[in-house]
Simulated scan of single mutants.
Amino acid sequence: MDTTTDPRPLLTRALGQLARLIAAVPAGRLDGPTPCEEFDVRALLRHLVGGADAASAIGETGTRGVLTPAPDVPDDGWTAAYDAARARLTAAWADDTKLDMPLTMPWGAMPGRAYLFSGCVLEMAAHAWDLSQALGSPFPLDQELAECALEWAHRALPAERRGEGVPFAPVRPAPEGADAYVRLAAWLGRAV
């Protein structure tokens, strides 16, 4: 994958995979833990909806606002909330010119396409694994999507770039023969 590639097909796959996982969340699991230690399932869903809305706003305005979790959503409303955020995000980045739109993010200046890879596809793939693990792996995840996210993570988040101000723990070893999601989770510092 290079920085001239259109990330929107991967974004569509990442959004669809998360939508399927969110639809599989039973109300009784919302307070359950996830591998992302700062989130239980409900907090992770709030983060995913809020993140999609924030990415939408960047596509709509060309500027970064403050990432805020989604407002309170009824326990049975997460699928609808995510579907609305997903539709908004897809529409916000539909214009091809936005792929080369210059953005200034906390981690550096980049074109819109690089933001979609790092701020969306990578983030969504990582959290898809978190949610899948929290739900007991209800279905196989898109391995090709994780391979692309892992390739981007290796470039954008090198092992030596961890510590203060970086929201990822040190790289952890992945078990021999681990799938792409486990290797991605380990690269991002998750216990696998």
Rank of each mutant, 00 (worst) to 15 (best):
A149P: 10
G177E: 13
A94P: 14
P71Q: 06
L44D: 12
D53T: 06
W129I: 00
P138A: 15
Y82T: 02
R42L: 03
W93G: 01
L150T: 09
E37C: 03
L122V: 11
A91V: 06
S118T: 04
L145D: 02
P7L: 03
D53W: 10
T68K: 10
A27P: 03
H127K: 04
P7K: 12
I22P: 01
D6M: 09
R20A: 13
E147A: 12
E176T: 11
A43F: 11
A185C: 09
M101K: 04
A87P: 05
P69D: 04
L122Y: 02
G65K: 06
G65Q: 12
G165I: 14
V171E: 01
A92N: 05
P9K: 12
G51R: 01
A94H: 13
W187G: 00
A169Y: 05
W129M: 00
P74S: 09
T34W: 00
L145R: 08
L150A: 07
L44P: 13
R29N: 12
L145G: 03
T34M: 02
M1I: 14
V49L: 08
A91N: 15
S137F: 14
A55H: 03
G136E: 13
P106R: 05
L48N: 11
L131V: 10
A125L: 06
W129L: 00
G177M: 04
A27G: 12
D72I: 09
W78E: 02
A43N: 07
D95H: 02
R155E: 05
R64E: 14
A185F: 00
W187D: 00
L145W: 02
L10W: 08
P140L: 12
A57Y: 12
E123S: 11
G119V: 13
T90M: 12
R8V: 05
W78C: 04
L10H: 07
F39N: 02
A57M: 13
G59Y: 04
R155A: 10
